[in-house]
């Protein structure tokens, strides 16, 4: 996750608090999604960015995960998400990201 965006997320959490805030991501693969989740829950794994050693504890979901999908209307799902759900396996995303949410 780019360092400029790490700084932005950090600022947003400081401003709004982590209690009623979550991050919803749209990464094109599971590995990329995991990296973002790791960065904003446990801190920057490369120890280089503003989130190095900072544990924001922000819950992270991928927009294709079943829990989020359940809240999105059929029309919007078809228009925005359906095709990418064939490219990235929503179940795999859930398995990968739920690990980090348990820690958040």
């Amino acid at each position: 996750m780019d360092q400029e965006y790490q700084a932005t997320v950090k600022k947003l959490v400081e401003e709004h608090g982590a209690d009623n805030l979550m991050m919803i991501i749209g990464a094109p693969d599971v590995e990329g999604a995991e990296l973002v989740a790791e960065t904003v829950t446990e801190g920057d794994p490369s120890y280089a960015g503003p989130l190095a050693g900072v544990s924001l504890g922000l819950p992270v979901y991928h927009v294709l995960e079943p829990a989020i999908r359940a809240e999105i209307s059929e029309d919007l799902y078809k228009e925005h998400l359906e095709m990418m759900a064939m490219v990235i396996d929503p179940q795999e995303l859930e398995t990968a990201l739920s690990k980090y949410r348990k820690k958040s």
Partner: peptide, 23 residues
Amino acid sequence: TLPMGSGNVPLTNYKTIAAMAAM
């Protein structure tokens, strides 16, 4: 791109076109 967690860009693009053909 992969070592930086930036994904395999062509593969994602091809998967998307293939998904479209399947749909």
